[in-house]
């Protein structure tokens, strides 16, 4: 496995108590694989990604436990200089908002070239040539001239392309994309995801794609992690998780997709609020919003295999007590 994350816990210690943003997450990522991470806002998706690259502000954040093995180093325990050598070179990250992720005072060329100069030790002309090729590959017209422009001269979609080019210019082994298309409009979203897919195939890069758009996951990913309250509640191949969801939360998320409703029907929403992460949650975190919850859901749960490629943290589903409607049965 390219990346092996084991029992990652990231807590934030605030005045108002300890927030368990990521609470015992384990997963692995194979070379060239695309892993989707879905869940509501505030369920720890981004914090999990930031933890892997050591981008959690400390304090108040702290990585309480866990290992993330990546090519012989433990990303969570290695020295700052080892981590710097990995960041932006072997693991790159694309942020959510392209409008604020580029430095407004520096030309795009300066910023795209930076990782090449810094990590690969290329000369300025060689790096510039590669940077132009990278911008070209993400679909920026007239890249050789455009590269000398300033960020304000680019639209949001174009800036996100620049960010992606910047992330992929060093040919990283893993690309972490934290909601890369959330800030963009729908037509641009599809174009950008398509570009990323193409580049990914060419370079053999694995990707962790964080999103709350289930449609994107279904279209792009090989495997999915469904997160809730800082824990993984279900994981498996896209086919397994979407075809036969094995956790009530996944099923409820699916039911909430407006496109799957008959026109005129009230839209489905999951009742209640995600739990307060400052509270210790002993049993299943979703129990208080779950229509299938019974007393045994208050006992500790853990992610267990249903089949070899489909894991769930729902005790009742594991025991075979309940059957959940899959995507096929909710659609008209």
């Amino acid at each position: 496995m390219l990346l092996d994350v084991d029992n990652l816990r990231t807590y934030f210690h605030s005045r108002h108590g300890t927030v368990r943003a990521v609470d015992g997450v384990s997963f692995s990522l194979g070379a060239g694989e695309t892993l989707g991470v879905v869940g509501e806002s505030g369920c720890g998706k981004s914090v999990m990604c930031m933890s892997l690259l050591g981008l959690i502000p400390q304090p108040p954040g702290r990585i309480e436990s866990g290992r993330a093995r990546f090519g012989g180093v433990d990303l969570l325990a290695c020295s700052a200089s080892e981590l710097r050598a990995v960041r932006g070179c072997r693991i790159s990250m694309v942020f959510q908002d392209p409008m604020t992720s580029l430095n407004p005072y520096l030309r795009v060329s300066t910023q795209v070239v930076e990782p090449l100069l810094y990590h690969k030790g290329l000369s300025q002309p060689a790096a510039l040539e590669q940077a132009i090729a990278a911008l070209d590959a993400v679909g920026i017209p007239d890249a050789a001239r455009r590269i000398h422009a300033y960020p304000y001269e680019f639209s949001g979609g174009m800036r996100q392309r620049v960010m992606i080019a910047m992330a992929l210019v060093t040919r990283p082994e893993i690309l972490i994309a934290d909601e890369p298309t959330t800030a963009l409009d729908v037509t641009v979203q599809a174009q950008i995801l398509e570009r990323v897919r193409t580049m990914q195939r060419e370079l053999g890069t694995a990707m962790i794609l964080v999103t709350h758009d289930l449609g994107v996951v279904a279209g792009v990913c090989d495997r999915i992690l469904v997160m809730y309250a800082g824990r993984i509640v279900e994981s498996g191949t896209v086919r397994a998780v979407f075809g036969t969801p094995a956790h009530p939360y996944t099923a409820a998320l699916q039911k909430s997709i407006p496109a799957l409703h008959r026109k005129g029907d009230p839209l489905y929403t999951i009742g209640g609020q995600p739990p307060d992460l400052r509270r210790e949650i002993a049993g299943c975190a979703f129990a208080e919003r779950c229509e299938f919850a019974v007393e045994c859901c208050q006992r500790p749960v853990e992610l267990r295999p249903l089949t070899a490629e489909h894991w769930t943290a729902c005790t009742r589903r594991l025991a075979g007590d309940i059957t959940l409607p899959g995507a096929g049965t909710t659609s008209r």
Binding site: L55, A85, V86, R87, G88, M93, S101, L102, M163
Partner: peptide
Amino acid sequence: RQEYVEAAVALGLG
């Protein structure tokens, strides 16, 4: 606190 600084950190710059 701006994202471009965070992005620079994520790029592995010193």
